[in-house]
Simulated assay, not measured.
Amino acid sequence: MILILTESFDQPAQNVASILDTKFAEYKVIYGTDLLQKKFSVDITKNVIEFDNDVLDNINIVWYRRWISSKFEFSNNPEENIYLKSEFEELSSNFMLNIPTKKWLNIPPYINPYPTKAKQLKQAIEFGLNIPRTNISNNKITLQEFYRENKENIITKSLYNPYTYYENDELYCTYTTQVDDVDIQTQENLFFPSLFQNNIKKYIELRIFYFLGKFYSYAIFSSQNQQTSVDFRVYDHNYPNRLMKYELPKEIKKKLTNFMTTFNLHTGSIDMIIDEIGTFHFLEVNPQGQFGGMLDLDLDIENDIATYLIENNV
């Protein structure tokens, strides 16, 4: 049997499940929230999991896609919410470690933690990938020096994950943002440590989905639109960026494959940019990144994942 672990409303996982249906494959989907809403038990001594009145057995492959939203609230009490979240993370680790499977597609971060941005950038350099000039600082003097060294053209982004929140039923999120002299001058002498990079003059952005040595890539022409020029996720619905299927050079594929293999990442959404003189720059990889909507560009990732799961359901 194929087991899919994901969070509810994850469209790529639902699309893959629909393909498995058309091919009459035997599979089960478990959402992270199911551990809070359905009966289960984990017998660590016997290595047996009972879930929703069934024993989880005869599992040949597990696809870990996602698990639970980082914004999920376990309690209205802030301190209790923090405690229960840590308990749920430990629960998830115990649950996944005891799944009797022959093979994983994506090892969960509850078993093998995902690499931080710092580790990613250091490893990218090791494999010969270019990265933006990067500085993590908490003081105005260092930031001013970095600003001048990079021709007064720098950006800032989250050290870990973007901050998201809801207000009046609207979702807000932090994005990569350009930093100017006014921003620096209005800062305190000491501020919360932040990540800064030189703002590379880009020709195009690349969104690359990696799947066990295969690459599904497309170019995003975002540089000519002021709203999307720094971060294409600040989407302009009135003037959408043009997208085009893109074939990566063999040398870049080799470096990225070595990078992903080092971190034991089977899949991931990789962000890169190509500057105005044609140099490739690695930005980051999100092991749980989205990859829906690429079929329009003749990039049938979901069908390839479904086929892989079926072929390994033995």
Rank of each mutant, 00 (worst) to 15 (best):
246 Y>F: 15
108 P>L: 12
81 N>C: 09
156 T>M: 14
162 P>Q: 13
217 S>Y: 02
209 F>L: 01
151 K>D: 04
65 R>M: 08
207 R>S: 05
238 N>I: 05
227 Q>V: 12
240 P>I: 05
273 I>S: 03
148 R>L: 15
70 S>A: 15
135 N>L: 09
124 A>C: 13
25 A>L: 03
48 V>A: 10
146 F>K: 02
127 F>R: 10
17 A>M: 03
128 G>P: 00
198 N>C: 07
34 D>E: 01
43 D>N: 13
259 F>N: 06
313 N>H: 09
180 D>K: 14
181 D>G: 09
144 Q>Y: 10
74 F>R: 13
52 D>N: 15
270 I>M: 07
56 L>R: 02
39 K>A: 13
193 P>C: 08
74 F>H: 11
136 I>N: 06
168 N>K: 09
291 F>E: 05
162 P>E: 08
152 E>H: 10
50 E>K: 12
74 F>P: 03
111 I>M: 12
313 N>D: 13
153 N>C: 10
285 V>C: 13
231 D>E: 01
61 I>Q: 03
126 E>N: 15
255 K>T: 08
204 I>L: 12
285 V>N: 09
21 D>A: 06
84 L>V: 05
289 G>Q: 06
54 D>T: 01
313 N>M: 11
125 I>H: 07
232 F>Q: 00
128 G>Y: 09
56 L>H: 02
190 L>T: 10
95 F>E: 03
296 D>S: 14
48 V>T: 09
299 L>T: 07
262 T>F: 14
176 T>M: 01
224 Q>K: 14
260 M>E: 02
101 T>W: 10
271 D>K: 10
94 N>P: 05
219 A>I: 02
132 P>L: 07
150 N>F: 09
4 I>C: 07
177 T>D: 14
168 N>L: 01
12 P>L: 06
197 Q>I: 02
259 F>Q: 11
116 T>S: 15
166 Y>V: 04
1 M>T: 05
249 P>H: 10
260 M>C: 01
2 I>T: 02
168 N>T: 02
195 L>G: 01
278 G>T: 01
143 L>N: 03
163 Y>N: 08
268 G>Q: 07
101 T>Y: 09
39 K>Y: 12
282 F>S: 11
145 E>F: 05
282 F>D: 06
43 D>C: 05
182 V>K: 13
220 I>H: 11
275 D>K: 04
114 Y>M: 07
107 I>A: 06
96 M>F: 06
243 L>H: 15
232 F>T: 01
305 I>A: 04
110 Y>M: 05
54 D>S: 12
181 D>P: 11
199 N>Y: 15
18 S>F: 12
48 V>M: 11
276 E>A: 14
203 Y>C: 00
186 T>L: 14
290 Q>K: 01
199 N>W: 13
86 S>V: 05
49 I>W: 10
9 F>V: 07
249 P>E: 04
304 D>C: 08
136 I>Y: 08
179 V>M: 15
72 F>D: 10
235 Y>M: 02
